[in-house]
Simulated assay, not measured.
Amino acid sequence: MEMDSAAFEELVIDELDRLPDEMVDGLDNVVFVVEDRPEDGSLDLLGLYDGLALTERTQYGTGELPDRIVVYREPHLAACESDDELRDEVHTTLVHEIAHFYGIDDRQLHELGWA
């Protein structure tokens, strides 16, 4: 599947806007970033939460760098064959990485059917 960076970023923003308010309202000091690939160049990783989960924070105040949720464009395109499939996969990736922000680990995500 082919899609340029700008169109993919728009799709990510669109899917982020479609998420339930109760899921995104608690996202404090979090930025969403679209990158082409993970640093290792692989196509295996669709997204990444880079930060400290709420459940692991003892103190959080001003001055901290924002947590990052990264969505990787090329792995998504390699994994999907249609626009609908791509949209669904981006949605799932966003939910998955936001869950990590809230302290939900991969095991719990599998139990909930989100991974």
Rank of each mutant, 00 (worst) to 15 (best):
A7Y: 06
A7M: 08
A7G: 05
A7S: 10
E9P: 03
E9A: 13
E10H: 15
E10T: 14
E10M: 14
E10W: 12
E10A: 15
L11F: 07
L11G: 04
V12C: 08
V12R: 08
V12K: 07
V12L: 09
I13D: 14
E15R: 15
L16F: 11
L16P: 09
D17W: 09
D17L: 12
R18W: 08
P20D: 09
D21L: 14
D21Y: 15
E22W: 14
E22I: 13
M23V: 15
M23S: 10
V24L: 10
D25A: 12
G26D: 13
G26K: 09
L27D: 02
D28Q: 14
V30P: 05
V30T: 05
V30L: 07
V31A: 09
F32H: 08
V34N: 07
V34E: 06
E35W: 03
E35F: 00
D36R: 04
D36E: 12
D36G: 03
D40Y: 01
D40T: 05
G41R: 02
G41D: 04
L43C: 06
L43K: 03
L43Y: 08
D44W: 04
L46R: 04
G47K: 03
L48H: 09
Y49V: 00
Y49M: 03
D50W: 05
D50I: 00
D50G: 00
D50V: 02
D50K: 04
G51L: 01
A53P: 13
A53D: 02
T55H: 11
T55C: 08
E56N: 11
E56K: 15
Q59H: 13
Q59I: 12
G61Y: 04
G61R: 11
T62I: 13
G63W: 00
G63D: 06
G63E: 07
E64I: 10
E64H: 14
P66T: 04
P66L: 02
P66Q: 05
R68Q: 13
I69N: 01
V70D: 02
V70E: 06
V70P: 07
Y72Q: 03
Y72C: 00
R73I: 10
R73T: 06
E74K: 06
P75N: 12
P75G: 10
H76Y: 11
H76N: 11
H76S: 05
H76W: 10
L77I: 08
A78K: 15
A79G: 10
A79I: 07
A79E: 14
C80N: 11
S82Q: 09
D84E: 15
D84I: 12
E85V: 12
E85K: 14
R87K: 14
R87N: 04
D88S: 12
E89L: 14
E89S: 15
V90G: 03
V90S: 01
V90F: 01
H91V: 07
T92H: 13
T93F: 08
L94E: 07
E97L: 06
I98C: 00
A99W: 00
H100M: 05
H100R: 05
F101Y: 15
G103P: 00
I104N: 00
I104F: 08
D106K: 12
R107F: 14
Q108G: 02
H110I: 10
H110M: 13
H110V: 13
E111L: 15
L112P: 07
L112W: 12
G113K: 03
G113L: 08
G113P: 04
